[in-house]
Design a protein around this nucleic acid. Structure first.
Length: 750
DNA sequence: TGCTTCACCATTTTT
DNA sequence: TGGTGAAGCA
């Protein structure tokens, strides 16, 4: 907290909105009538059904500002919850713009951050230490496997991922292992119940919580301890929730608990955009809100400020095929716009060429910025052909999603070292680092350490510290383990002296031998990993700097750093400044908007996904389609391919049923003439929307040449294949790509 | 202990 | 088609 903010804190009240006249006037001036009704709502629950592009974030931020400006709430009494860090950041920023620095007193954060914050203080009540570690899905999966291993459950018959997801589902529904067992009948489920129980026990012993635990344990806390419950119920006079349709049972219960005294629950959502059912989101939470919270008022936002009427009509028509939903019809006053283009191509290559060609045509002939163009697909696998084609057409693009920074092995390793320093009970992090880098502590040794730890009720680290007492270890293993234990002990001493996190991290990386081992590899991959680790050190340095400004807090810097990054994912990696076309899954597209949207792979067998159809989730697929369609502001393209390689086999598919649900009068249809596919660029019909770049005389490239690519940057040629294809490994993202030497924007580095 | 080969299998994934 | 994970060998 800076000096300036401290001053503003004392001056809170009518925030710096307007001097003189009614301070709320300007806030309300920018709103349409239903928006205004929502913002000026008095006390009691309110459900805002906010259609796509209807200004829901505006309503939320203005509502918060309104509460502050009218004195209905002190900033410190406001809890505003989102699902993503990105949404929370955006909301905080926009609120700050409206009310100024007092926004710092508000709790504007994700469900998980809010829960983690509460649990850091209160976890001892539940028998956890305040320094608990937060496990991501991968860590949690390891723990599931470990529990299964301990119970001798065959992973062939019980896929760990399935078991994990059943446990997670149960937690999302607030069903603990005891209740889970009671409800189950089949042998399979009995076994899952066993694993669930063991998993919980081991998680607790490791002083660790998975993402679901953050919610569930907070609910437990509030239900079990009246004083804690009342404290938070009193504290949060107004509770606001974004994307309410995505809440699961645990989140629902949490909101119910936390808003019980004041009853001011303000939720904004769109049942049409509920696409996370597979993760436990329960669409009933929004459909039955009025029943669950007495005297709820409902406001519908149906005016859309994003898309043309054509696009909205298409979206409405698609959704008319779903049942059990809140009646809602989007409209706009921006006009009809151009028809939806539906194109049927011969195969995925033609489809990709079509998209690439149209992108270039739009960019060069119609002046559409490439940042305003996106392509969505149902499954990540569909991006590959499109990417290859965009490269060949020299169209710069970015892919959102994919491998995340914090999921990279080297980053997870580094964090695991820090986890062990803060939380010595953390068995999963221990396992991660004990033999990484290689120090001769192999599987057998690890298994013996672990079983010794489990039978004696101590942590693996403690077992390592008294390795002499572990039975069955050879002298070599004993020596390696005790050296490891000593190294950790010395690092822990260092961490307790509270140095900056960045310095500690550097010490960890060098003293553990991790960096040395990477450098000894002398490969491009290893180099990239070192770079990533440097980036992590940079993140830590930034954290240290911010912390120095904000002053001390009750928990240690390292602890705070770990909590922050464990709940941070780099979803907000998207760049909007460069001239890049954006590629992503339909799920990732939620909340975004683009002038031009391509939805590729609109075929039966792809979208709707056959698995969803099997499982009776067609309506959710249709909502996903709705989400995709409503991202488009001006022009929507829906493409399908008659045949496509999927999982190595050729598949022949009909166009998606969703295409048929768009009324003909809104559509301009294009059907490809049969044309050969493959490497031949251009040609007639579709896919030749724009002439491909003329072949240049081949650049003489050989293995080992350093090259520079217009969008991928520096790389090295690792192979040359017939047909003037070169394989280049790029330093930037460490991937190998096959490029057409004649077409790729590639030149030899000097 | 650790590397290599082989078989398998396969949505979506805010935290 | 390609990435992952478990058994087999040096």
């Amino acid at each position: 907290m800076t000096q300036g903010d401290a001053v503003e804190e004392h001056e809170w009240g009518p925030a710096p909105v307007e001097v003189g006249a009614d301070p709320t006037e300007r806030l309300l001036a920018e709103l349409n009538p239903p928006q205004r009704a929502a913002v000026t709502h008095g006390e009691g629950p309110l459900l805002v059904l906010a259609g796509a592009g209807s200004g829901k974030t505006r309503v939320l931020t203005h509502r918060i500002a309104y509460l502050v400006a009218t004195g209905m709430a002190h900033p410190g009494e406001i809890l505003a919850i989102t699902f993503t860090n990105k949404a929370a950041d955006e909301m905080r920023e926009r609120v700050e713009r409206l009310v100024g620095g007092v926004s710092r007193l508000m709790w504007v954060m994700t469900f998980h951050s809010a829960c983690a914050r509460i649990l850091r203080r209160e976890a001892p009540r539940l028998g956890y230490k305040g320094t608990f570690t937060i496990y991501d899905q991968a860590d949690s999966l390891r723990m599931v496997k470990r529990a299964m291993n301990e119970l001798e459950v065959d992973p062939k018959r019980f896929p760990p991922r399935t078991v994990q997801s059943q446990i997670s589902d149960a937690k999302n529904r607030l069903i603990d292992s005891v209740e889970f067992r009671d409800q189950q009948g089949s042998f399979f489920e009995e076994t899952v119940a066993d694993v669930y129980e063991m998993y919980e026990r081991r998680m607790h012993a490791a002083n660790a919580m998975d993402f679901d635990d953050l919610l569930v344990r907070t609910v437990n806390l509030l239900e079990l301890f009246e004083d804690v419950r009342e404290r938070y119920q009193q504290a949060f006079r107004h509770v606001l929730v974004d994307e309410y349709q995505d809440t699961n049972r645990a989140q629902y219960r949490l909101l119910q608990l936390v808003s019980a005294i004041h009853g001011n629950l303000f939720v904004v959502g769109d049942d049409f955009q509920s696409v996370y059912g597979f993760r436990g989101a329960d669409i009933r939470n929004i459909l039955e809100f009025e029943r669950d919270f007495k005297d709820t008022e409902v406001v519908k936002l149906e005016q859309n400020y994003r898309s043309t009427q054509t696009i909205l009509s298409a979206a409405n028509a698609i959704m008319a095929n779903n049942r059990g939903q809140k009646e809602k019809r989007l409209w706009t006053d921006v006009g009809e716009g151009v028809p939806v283009t539906i194109s049927e191509l011969t195969d995925e290559h033609a489809e990709a060429r079509y998209v690439a060609g149209e992108v270039e045509r739009l960019a060069t002939e119609e002046g559409v910025a490439r940042t305003q163009i996106a392509a969505f697909y149902r499954t990540n696998a569909l991006s590959r052909v499109l990417e290859d084609t965009l490269v060949r057409y020299d169209v710069p693009y970015q892919v959102i999603g994919g491998t995340k920074f914090y999921e990279r092995a080297e980053i997870k390793d580094a964090i695991a070292y820090l986890n062990v320093l803060v939380n010595p009970d953390d068995a999963i992090s221990f396992a991660r680092i004990v033999n990484s880098p290689r120090r001769g502590i192999g599987q057998t040794t690890q298994a013996r350490l672990l079983s010794h730890a489990n039978t004696n009720g101590i942590s693996p680290l403690e077992a390592a510290e008294s390795v002499a007492r572990v039975p069955g270890l050879g002298p070599g293993a004993v020596k390696a383990v005790s050296r490891f234990a000593e190294m950790i002990a010395s690092l822990r001493q260092r961490s307790e002296a509270e140095p900056p996190v960045a310095g500690l991290l550097e010490a960890v990386l060098s003293e553990s031998g991790y960096l040395d081992a990477l450098e000894a590899e002398r490969t491009v991959e290893a180099e990239g990993r070192v770079e990533n680790l440097n980036e992590l050190v940079g993140v830590a340095g930034e954290f240290d700097a911010n912390r120095a400004v904000e002053g001390p807090s009750e928990i240690s810097p390292l602890d705070e750093f770990l909590q922050q990054i464990s709940l941070f994912s780099d979803q907000d990696q998207m760049r909007r400044d460069d001239e890049l076309v954006t590629l992503m899954t339909l799920h990732n597209a939620k909340g975004l908007e683009f002038d031009v949207v391509f939805m590729i792979g609109c075929e039966e067998g792809v979208f709707p996904h056959p698995r969803s159809v099997e499982e009776g989730n067609l309506e959710e697929e249709r909502r996903l389609c709705y989400v995709g369609v409503t991202r488009a502001k001006r022009h929507l393209y829906l493409t399908s391919a008659r045949e496509r390689n999927l999982y190595g086999a050729r598949g022949y598919n009909l166009a998606s049923r969703f295409l048929g649900e768009v009324p003909d009068q809104l559509v301009e249809r294009q059907v490809a003439q049969s044309q050969p596919s493959g490497w031949s660029l251009g040609g007639g019909g579709l896919g030749g929307g724009v002439a491909p770049p003329q072949p240049r005389p081949a650049v003489e490239l050989g293995v080992g040449d350093d090259v520079i690519h217009a969008s991928f940057g520096e790389g090295i040629v690792t192979a040359v294949e017939p047909g003037s294809v070169v394989v280049v490994r790029f330093a930037g993202d460490n991937t190998e790509r096959k490029l057409m030497a004649d077409y790729a924007p590639l030149r030899k580095a000097s």
